[in-house]
Amino acid sequence: MNWMAVGAIYRFEMARFFRTIVQSFVAPVITTSLYFVVFGAAIGSRIDEVEGVSYGAFIVPGLVMLSVMTQAISNASFGIYFPKFIGTIYELLSAPINFLEIVTGYVGAAATKALFIGVVILVTASMFVPLRVEHPVAMVAFLMLTCLSFALMGFIIGIWASNFEQLQLVPLLVVTPLIFLGGAFYSISMLPEFWQKVALLNPVVYLISGFRWAFYGLADVPVLVSLLAIAGFTALCLAAIWRIFQTGWRLRA
């Protein structure tokens, strides 16, 4: 492992993030506050409790997941798409580094940014509702694995995309709907029986369920299944990336 190179990529990407730190910080604080105003206050006044947890507190894990997933994807996809777009990718291709090092650098940075935003949202949320974390280790593990796996997925999207529209396409058409339908703002058990079954086909359901379990001990699916799902998803992304670098797909002529 060429850690020097990994560090160089990671630092370079993080420097870009820190240059716009105010934006990076303010945007999630404002969005989260808005969610609490809209969902927590407006809807929450009609649904006061979900399985013994106040609605405001119930949506926090989903809210964090929603932001972390979209941020990880957009940061990682943009991070690798941009050098491709402006041509500086030549440098990565001609450097004595392998796919693992490139991925570690870019995905590591994207996951770190997503994690940072996740934490900001948690802190903001804790000012609106009382938070309780029953399984802190699992909470951190789920959070980090989600950052990582979605950053990996974003990286693949960034390599696949050949224009900015495509870069937005997958997150917009696939990921965001899956997250909204994945039980971020409700429990799957609140759905009609048929739709409960359909929901189980949505991988995001497992992540949000597992993450919420770490907070309140409530889960739509067994937590072990959640863990397996996210581990499997991570492995799938890694395998895809490995294949991409082996064949040089969309990178090397």
């Binding site: 060429n2 190179a5 990529i9 420097a15 450097a95």
Partner: peptide
């Protein structure tokens, strides 16, 4: 070249990427 980077950071980056 990355338009928004400084001369120094981009040169330093290359050296780093080459380990």
């Amino acid at each position: 070249l990355e338009p928004f980077e400084t001369v120094w950071s981009t040169v330093r980056f290359t050296r780093g990427v080459f380990g």
